[in-house]
Design a protein around this nucleic acid. Structure first.
Length: 124
DNA sequence: GGAGAGGCTTACT
DNA sequence: AAGTAAGCCTCTC
């Protein structure tokens, strides 16, 4: 198949949501980790996160997902960034003034190893 | 169908 | 640690 339909994004979106929901409390992961695990680009994960619905944003621990440098994305909305930081600190993590998670090694959650998923097909 | 943007990443300064 | 540049893929206009 030369050109995969946009249904791939729906599957990717669903998987991102699932993986984010698996992140335990008091821990965090990165966009890149999820992206590698899903065999997609990091930007796609970020894009999915930015387009979450209200229901999903309340149901999912989106605040446990940060950038590769273990810091809260500065491009995110200031109010959301503040909420994210407060939630992380509330779960036992220390966040710097710049949004860096201090005990990154201790609280990092490994999503999983890289998989060979072809999102273009209907499921292999 | 082309252009611009998006909660990123790695590499180099 | 901060700034710039290029990369890659999908969405939206």
């Amino acid at each position: 198949m030369p050109k995969p339909p946009s249904i791939a994004f729906q599957r990717i979106r669903a998987e991102v949501i699932r993986l984010v929901g698996l992140v335990p409390e008091g821990k965090f992961t990165t966009y890149g980790s999820i992206a590698v695990h899903m065999n997609v680009m990091a930007r796609h994960v970020a894009f999915v996160m930015s387009r979450l619905t209200e229901e999903e944003s309340e149901r999912l621990p989106w605040h446990r997902v940060v950038g590769a440098d273990a810091r809260i994305s500065p491009k995110m909305d200031a109010e959301l960034a503040r909420v994210q930081r407060e939630r992380l600190e509330k779960e036992g993590m220390k966040v710097n003034e710049r949004g860096f998670i201090l005990d990154d090694e201790a609280h990092f959650h490994v999503v999983g190893v890289q998989r060979d998923i072809r999102w273009s097909e209907g499921g292999d």
